[in-house]
Amino acid sequence: MMLGEGLFLMDKWSDQVAELADALAPTVGHHATLARSVKIFRAESAVSNIPKFLHPGILFVVQGMERLCCDVNVHIADSNHFLLTSAPLEFRIDTEAAAAMPLLAIQVAFDPATAMDIAQEIMRQDGSQAGPAAICQTCGVVDPPLRDLLCRLLKTLRDPVSCRILMPGLIRELHFLLLKGHDGPAVLAGLQGEGTRGKVLKTAAELLNRRRTGVSINNVAAAAEISISSYHSHFKALFGSTPLAYLKAARLHEARGLLKSADIGIAAVSHAVGYRGTSQFSREFHRYFGRTAQSEQKLLREAQSNLDLV
C-alpha cells in the first residue's frame, strides 16, 4: 500500500468513527450506551492539569487529544494511540478540545476475568514462558485490526438487538487484541501477580478496600513477603506515587463523587471517606483539586463542572 493511500484510509476511518461517536454523545459530558461497559465522552473546551483517578479501562480518543501524566509516564491518547489501564490509577490530564472540534472519547471497561480467561487460552497455545516485569498502564498504536473493531463496536451500539447479541464478542475480541499486543504479556504478569512487581500490584486492591479505615503499609508489604523499601520502590514504578499518596488521591476522588449528592454535607463527606476532622479534609481537598470542597460541591450540583474526563 502506498503511503498516501494509507494516510487517506486513516483519515477516512477517523472521520467515520468521529461521526459515529458524535451521534452517540451529542452533548457535553458522559453518555451511557446500550452496553454497560462502554461510555462515550464529549468535551468542547480544553482543560489543563486536572486530577483524575481512572478505573481500569481502555481509552480511545477518536477526535481531539488527552495527555495523561503521572510521575513515571506520560501517555498520549488520540486517534492514533489508545491507553490501557488494568488497575485504578491517578493521572493529571490535559486535553485539546473546542466547540468546532470537540473531544470525543470512548471508554471501555477492562475486565480482569475476561483477560485471565484469554490468558489461559494464549498459554495453552504458546506454552508457558517467563514473562516480563508487570505493568498496569500502557499506551499503544491503534492499528488496522483495532480500527476495524472500534468501528464495528460503535455501529453495534446504535441497535439494541445487535448490541445484546454481538457486544460480548466484540469486548472479548478487544481484550484479545490488546493482550496479544506488545505490552500484553506485561499486563498479564500484573494480573497474575508474577514477580515482585506483580505481587505489589496485587496489593493495590487491599489498599483501596481499606482506604476508609486505615491500613498499615508495613503490614501489607510483610504479607506480600516484600521488604518495605522494595515495596515502595516497585509501587512508585507501577503507580507513579507512594502508597500513601495513592490512597489519599483515591479518598479525595471518592469524596468528590459524594459531593454531588444534595443530601450530604462537607462534614459527612469527610467522615465517610475516613478523615477524622473536617479541617484536614478541607485543606487536603483544596490543595489537591485547587478549589474548596464547598466550591466544588456547588459546581457539581449546578452541573457546570466539566472536569470528569474519561
Rank of each mutant, 00 (worst) to 15 (best):
L3H: 15
G4R: 09
E5Q: 06
K12A: 13
E19R: 15
L20P: 00
D22S: 13
L24V: 01
A25T: 06
G29P: 03
A32F: 00
T33V: 00
T33L: 00
K39Y: 04
R42G: 02
A43T: 15
K52G: 08
F53L: 14
V61F: 01
G64S: 04
C69F: 10
C69W: 05
P88E: 11
T95N: 08
A97K: 08
M101N: 14
P102C: 12
P102L: 11
L103F: 09
L104F: 01
A109E: 03
F110L: 08
F110A: 03
M116S: 11
D117T: 06
Q129I: 10
P132Q: 07
I135P: 00
C136I: 14
C139W: 04
K155C: 00
P160T: 09
V161L: 08
S162K: 06
C163Q: 02
I165A: 00
M167Q: 02
R172G: 02
K180N: 09
H182P: 02
D183E: 12
A186D: 03
G190T: 08
L191H: 10
G193L: 11
K202P: 13
A204M: 10
L207K: 03
L208Y: 10
L208C: 09
R211H: 12
R212K: 15
G214L: 01
N218A: 14
A223V: 13
S227M: 04
I228F: 15
S229Y: 15
S229C: 09
H232L: 12
S241R: 03
S241L: 05
P243L: 06
L247G: 14
K248G: 10
A255Q: 05
G257V: 10
S261H: 13
D263M: 05
G265D: 13
G265P: 10
A268G: 15
V269L: 09
G277V: 02
G277S: 09
G277E: 14
Q280F: 01
F285N: 01
H286Q: 15
F289H: 04
F289T: 08
A293F: 06
E296P: 05
K298V: 15
L299F: 14
A303R: 14
A303W: 08
Q304Y: 06
